[in-house]
C-alpha cells in the first residue's frame, strides 16, 4: 500500500515536472516568461538552501580531493576553458572556432533537446539541495 502511494506520488511529481519543463522550454528566448520559467526553480533551490542547508552538508564525500586525484577533470575543464577563451576572443560567433554556447545553440533548435537538457538541469538543482543522495566510500 505504501509502495503504491510512493509510486503514485512519484508519478504525479514526474508528470508535473514534465509539464512544467514542456511549458518552460516552449517559451521564446529573451522574453520575460522565459526568464521566469528558469527563475522559479532557481528561487525554489535558493529558498530550500536558505531554509534547510543541512541535507547537502551531510552528504559529504569521503573522497580526498587533491590535484592528483582530480587531474582528469581538470584536464577536460582546462581544454574546454582554452577553447572557450579562443572562441570568445574571436568574437563569440566565429564559425571556425565556435564557443560552447554557439555549438549548443544548434542542438537547442529542437524542443525535445531543450526539454531533456532542462530535465537534466532541474535534476542537478535538485541534487544541490540534497534531493539526490550520493555517498562515496573509498
Amino acid at each position: 500500500m505504501r509502495t503504491g502511494g510512493t509510486a503514485l506520488r512519484l508519478l504525479v511529481v514526474a508528470g508535473g515536472v514534465l509539464a512544467y519543463g514542456y511549458w518552460a522550454t516552449a517559451q521564446a528566448p529573451f522574453r520575460t516568461s522565459a526568464y521566469l520559467a528558469v527563475g522559479l526553480p532557481v528561487a525554489l533551490v535558493g529558498l530550500a538552501v536558505l531554509i534547510a542547508p543541512e541535507p547537502l552538508a551531510r552528504k559529504r564525500s569521503s573522497a580526498l580531493v587533491s590535484l592528483r586525484s582530480a587531474w582528469p577533470w581538470l584536464a577536460i575543464a582546462g581544454l574546454m576553458a582554452a577553447l572557450e577563451i579562443v572562441g570568445l576572443a574571436l568574437g563569440g560567433r566565429s564559425t571556425t572556432v565556435p564557443t560552447l554556447s554557439t555549438v549548443v545553440d544548434h542542438a537547442l533548435a529542437w524542443h525535445l533537446v531543450r526539454l531533456l537538457l532542462f530535465g537534466a538541469w532541474l535534476f542537478i538543482g535538485w541534487s544541490l539541495v540534497g534531493g539526490h543522495r550520493v555517498e562515496r566510500r573509498r
Binding site: F30, V104, W121, I124
Partner: peptide, 22 residues
Amino acid sequence: RLLLIVVWAFVGWHLFARYTIP
C-alpha cells in the same frame, strides 16, 4: 554551495532563456 547554485542558475538562464537558434 552558493557558488555552485550561482553557476547552476547562470547555466539555466544562458541555455533556456538566452539561446539563439542559428
